[in-house]
Design a protein around this nucleic acid. Structure first.
Lengths: 114, 114
DNA sequence: ATAACGTGCAACCAGATGGTTGTACGTGAC
DNA sequence: GTCACGTACAACCATCTGGTTGCACGTTAT
């Protein structure tokens, strides 16, 4: 029987990009905003005390990590948060929790047996 | 009534450190290992194709983020993964999911009313 | 006592990161 | 058609990152 790959395992560098993208307060804020409601790049830029180009770069990093998508709308590009990638990150953290629980169970078993 | 602060909100730079620490495959591997079973720094260093000092730095980054703790044991320092910080990160990602769900609900309400 | 082990820390280096300004170009408004 | 708007991209710069080597120091083993 072929075991179904539940969590389409991501290559290391994809995971690197996701967590790296989340390791910046401005980028996390952009994700929050665009998960709630899509926004153009200049709309986003207006919200932060930095140049348009800087915000544009942050959006590019998020897009590279798959945390947002961008689609053209007239002369604007609308940015939309991508919940799928958030869930991928969650499932990665879940794995760590599972490992830890496994350790605790082994310790418990050891105590029960001993 | 005082509302209980459910998710001890972390300052931005603490969150930065957590995600930054997770944005490296070697560091994620160290977390995995030490969640399952504690290990000395040199034990960890032996597992990777880089110098002892490099691994030591990775451990320091993880410790600074609260993802592992270190405690002395004779001449060794044992490194142990910290599930609490993992959970903090999970709850941060949960927030994003909630925001997204909120958006969908608003959209649904709009469709139902319209 | 001496040697080997485990760790910490500083100095150094190449490359990535996060910001800037300036230029170019398609789209929309007038 | 012209001008303003929204975006993209390149060049530049200071700082951070992730690796290296070398040295110092406490602890364990012989």
């Amino acid at each position: 029987m072929v075991v179904r790959d539940e969590q389409h395992r991501l290559p290391d560098d994809a995971v690197d990009r996701i967590f790296h993208a989340l390791a910046d307060a401005t980028r996390r804020d952009i994700v929050r905003r665009t998960l709630g409601r899509e926004a153009s790049v200049s709309e986003l830029a207006a919200a932060y005390a930095m140049s348009f180009a800087a915000v544009q770069k942050h959006v590019a990093v998020l897009e590279g990590a798959g945390l947002v998508t961008k689609h053209p709308n007239g002369r604007e590009r609308l940015v939309r948060g991508n919940p799928d990638t958030i869930r991928r990150a969650q499932s990665l953290l879940d794995d760590y929790e599972h490992i830890w629980r496994g350790r605790i169970e082994r310790l418990d078993a050891l105590l029960a047996d001993g």
